[in-house]
Design a protein around this nucleic acid. Sequence first.
DNA 1: TCTTGTTAGATTGTCGACAATCTGCTTGTC
DNA 2: GACAAGCAGATTGTCGACAATCTAACAAGA
Lengths: 230, 230
Amino acid sequence: MGKADFSPIADTTRRAEIVALLRRAILTGQLEPGQKLNELRISEQMRVSRAPLREAMRELVQEGILTSIPYAGTFVIEVTAKDIDDAYSFNKVMDELAIERAWPLRDQRFFDELDRRHEAVKQATRELDTTRQIETALQLHGLIYEWADNSVLLETWQRLTSRLQMYFALHQQARNEAVPAEDVHETYARLLKGTDMRAAQRHAREHIDLDFEELLSYARGLEQRPSKGV
Amino acid sequence: MGKADFSPIADTTRRAEIVALLRRAILTGQLEPGQKLNELRISEQMRVSRAPLREAMRELVQEGILTSIPYAGTFVIEVTAKDIDDAYSFNKVMDELAIERAWPLRDQRFFDELDRRHEAVKQATRELDTTRQIETALQLHGLIYEWADNSVLLETWQRLTSRLQMYFALHQQARNEAVPAEDVHETYARLLKGTDMRAAQRHAREHIDLDFEELLSYARGLEQRPSKGV
DNA sequence: TCTTGTTAGATTGTCGACAATCTGCTTGTC
DNA sequence: GACAAGCAGATTGTCGACAATCTAACAAGA
């Protein structure tokens, strides 16, 4: 029996790479909400034919960050205050569930991974890399979902993550200022290592509240003025 | 101002029709779990080229009822007991949430729609149309999600529905017997019209329990013998 | 001026063919 | 007989071209 355990090799289709590229462009705000994706232009820029590009777009439509209208085009989803509010209140309940399920399954590997991801957030914060900071914070948050041992729950979280990352990126980009205080996740990590599950759930709920409140007020502001769709 | 309010016209792309055809084939069990979908054969049968077929498949992969391995093929998802168990326990929590949110929003239209869908289930039951019975029962169940006024919650339910329908169809097909008693949903509908929200939540939870228990034992049986992948 | 019909251009949807990759069989060697 | 190399067939991934549809500008008529 061999000793090394290899991870799966990278996807080798153009389609998969296109998906990754497009997703990144959307989640970092390079592509703005409402913007139309011109197939010919993008395929030429990427030096790819339209077939794999269109397949990639189909995936992202199902993933919920693109929307498609037959014979009209494919667009980045618009972000309304209600969308954010819906995601927010849904996330609260999901978090409670995830913590509850993950709680008895915590082990040394869990704590190690928790520290690792927390460290990644702090590093991104030090480097003032806002995009990466959002990404790592969501990964830290996602740990309880990965540990909850429920494929449907995890999958739902991953779908939601795409949109959350987009929302936060938009917010960051809009206020265009330095990253928040360094150790907003310090308490979260500590509670997840502790023995009081209720406290952890409560904190998760309140902690999320804060982030979302800002987001919401931002989105409400957006809806006053007309969309800048292209 | 005109008086008629028109609904959106039907999708006119081949892709959309292919998606509908494939989904139906999978959810009714015509295509078995693990079965490979040969692009050339299917495209010839449907008299379409592979391009729209492949795009349709990509959508169903993201929808979670197909799975794709590069250069190997696209397959109907396998169904394990754990998958069903995960969907089951997740559904329980979601149901509680949906009922809670929909509860204060119930109005006459809600009750009318509840009756309408309940009637549809009873009709399908009378006609011994098992496929339609599963479909209508899920639609009845989905009403609270549609009324909960949360897009994320509704979307999550819709994604889950595909798989639930597939699970139940498999089960029905396997035991190959007449449909269960007629008014399993009578109590559910009555409680949703009542004033005791907790009671409705409790019933939803227990009612689901029953259906799933059967499903689970069936799936556990499946896993003893090897898969019959094609 | 407003509405309606027409048309040209751009864009999306679909097609058939070719390239890349996998699978199973055959062959040759030990 | 066991095993590796190599080949043939089938299947998926990608490409470039054509068809269907939409949009916007313009012209014609009330």
